[in-house]
Amino acid sequence: MADKSSEPSSLVRFINGILPENPVLRLVLGICPTLAVTASMEGAITMGLAATFVLFCSNFFVSLLKRFLQPHLRILVFTIIIATFVTIVDMFLKAFMYDMSRTLGPYIPLIIVNCIIIARAEACASKSRLLPSLADALGMGLGFTLALCILASVREILADGTWLNIPVMWEGFTTWTIMKLAPGAFLAFGLVVGANNFIRRKLEERKS
């Protein structure tokens, strides 16, 4: 177990996840759903919250069970926990948000193999106490949701001229259908990652 004094506090962990170590933009983890569900804001928000819920629950259980975990069974236990909560999310969506569950389809069960969740269980929850792990889960989850929303905003506004189904562009705006399709997803994500690098570099240059 890590030395307590060197362990970052819960608040630092929470903030870290949102921007400085944003899982999608900085660490480039969990990008499959990032590209697949960001054609519209609604899908992005639902996916972000679903992943945050799973991350929160898995960090909770992993942190509670960390004393019993042994190297060779660790990943197995992580997987059981994650798959269970993903199944719960899937059932919830099918029962209460039927249309959304049809839009997201198999991308919901694919949260099981979302690298962010297993990476946080391994790197944080299995080594830290309960509270920091939960703060970490919330921070990373919100960071993930934020990244999805940024990407979805770009894509929805350009592809449909709407944001959360509210028209935002001027009358007669030519919609960019390509942004809704696979090439648009890759392009928008590439540009957002590049822009993020640019902003960070400028900020660091100003600091020094």
């Binding site: 059981i80 926990i81 269970t84 199944t87 719960i88 059932m91 919830f92 099918k94 029962a95 209460f96």
Partner: peptide
């Protein structure tokens, strides 16, 4: 976890 899921499934599947 299995029994938890089974309970939840029994509750939500009719809705689905």
């Amino acid at each position: 976890f299995g029994s938890g899921l089974a309970l939840m499934y029994a509750g939500t599947n009719p809705l689905y």
